[in-house]
Design a protein around this nucleic acid. Structure first.
Length: 133
DNA sequence: GCCAACGTTGGC
DNA sequence: GCCAACGTTGGC
C-alpha cells in the first residue's frame, strides 16, 4: 500500500464536493511528474486531500478506486484515476504546522509546492493521521 | 494583489 | 541543446 497527496483548490473542487458526489474522476493534471505519480497508484492506495489557496490544510483521506487510464480527449499524453472519500478530518492539519514540523516539513508537496500529485511516506501519513483526530 | 518558484516553449 | 521569455501555481 502506498500513500499519496492530492491538491485541490476548494473553490474549484473541495473535499465536501467529493463527499456529496461519493466518488469522482481525478483528471486535468497537466504536469508530467504528477502524471507519473498517478500512473504508480494502485487500487486501494490512500491519498491525503489538501486544500490549496483557501484552507491551506490537509482535510481528509481518499482512496484510489480505479488505477490510471488515458484521459478522454488526451489519450496520448494524460491520465486520470478515480477516487472516493474515506474520512474527513476532525482537525485539518494546517500547512503552517506542517512547515515547522521536523518530519512533515520534509513532505514532497512542501518541498515542491507546484506538484499537485505527490508521494507520501508511511511515516508522514501516520503522523498526519495522528494529528487529525 | 503581489511575487517567487517552477515548468514549458521556442528561437538560435 | 541551451537559455531567455513567458505562463501558471500557490503562499503570503
Amino acid at each position: 500500500m502506498k500513500y499519496w497527496l492530492l491538491k485541490s483548490e476548494p473553490g474549484v473542487f473541495s473535499f465536501e464536493n467529493l463527499e456529496k458526489l461519493g466518488k469522482t474522476k481525478w483528471y486535468g493534471v497537466r504536469n508530467y511528474q504528477a502524471r507519473n505519480n498517478m500512473k504508480l497508484m494502485k487500487k486501494g492506495d490512500k491519498a491525503l486531500f489538501y486544500h490549496s489557496n483557501q484552507g491551506l490544510s490537509i482535510v481528509g483521506v481518499v482512496e484510489i478506486t480505479k488505477e490510471a487510464y488515458p484521459e478522454p480527449g488526451f489519450e496520448n499524453t494524460w491520465v486520470c484515476v478515480e477516487i472516493k472519500p474515506l474520512q474527513k478530518f476532525k482537525n485539518p492539519v494546517e500547512l503552517s504546522f506542517i512547515k515547522i514540523d521536523e518530519i512533515l516539513s520534509e513532505m514532497a508537496f512542501v518541498k515542491n509546492s507546484r506538484l499537485s500529485v505527490s508521494p507520501v511516506t508511511e511515516k508522514e501519513y501516520k503522523k498526519i493521521i495522528s494529528l487529525s483526530a
